[in-house]
């Protein structure tokens, strides 16, 4: 994650910073219950992951972060290692992007989500093996309706 994100955290009204390496994920996996549906699903997803990084900033006003803050991070997500599977820019300035790290078979080597809204910026990076099914169900778990990811790599922009 770019160092500029630390400055954004100082400006933000609220910020979330989750950084978990493989050791911490293993530790968390031991404490995730198999009885609870959400935790059981999380346990399955976490088993293949090497790291989780989430940075989310909520600002009081629009324009408190600029595109350059995100561009520096986006620069790292280049082909052939990464491919952008979804990129949506809306009239109100919202921009949603999903990048997948190419891997063999039905496994994905990692996923990055960039969600840039006028007053909120969120970057999610799940690195490690994650199956397409797990990814599709990820949105359907945790009290959120199921996500159907587009099968083609077509861009919506």
């Amino acid at each position: 994650m770019p160092a500029s994100f630390d400055k954004l955290a100082a400006k933000a009204e609220e910020s979330v910073d989750v950084t978990l390496d493989s050791n911490m994920l293993q530790l968390a996996g031991r404490f995730l219950s198999g009885q609870d549906a959400d935790q059981a699903k999380a346990k399955k997803i976490v088993a293949g992951l090497k790291g989780i990084t989430v940075r989310s900033f909520t600002f009081k006003q629009e324009g408190e972060y600029n595109a350059a803050d995100v561009d520096a991070f986006r620069e790292q997500l280049k082909a052939p290692a990464w491919s952008r599977v979804v990129g949506v820019t809306e009239k109100n300035g919202e921009r949603e992007e999903v990048y997948l790290k190419t891997s063999s078979g039905s496994q994905i080597g990692g996923i990055v989500i960039i969600s840039a809204e006028p007053k909120e910026l969120t970057i999610v990076n799940l690195s490690g093996d994650i199956s397409v099914d797990d990814l599709g169900e990820l949105g359907g778990q945790f009290g959120i309706p199921k996500v159907e990811l587009p099968k083609s790599k077509g861009k919506e922009e």
Binding site: V16, V18, L20, L25, A28, L32, D38, Q39, A42, I45, V46, I52, V54, S56, V86, V88, E96, E97, V98, I111, I113, S115, T122, V124, L126, L135, L138, G139, G140, Q141, F142, I144, P145, V147, L149
Partner: peptide, 15 residues
Amino acid sequence: VMLALRITGGKLRLT
């Protein structure tokens, strides 16, 4: 982990 996956799920739904 639960917080991170909730945020991920929420952002996927938004997308």
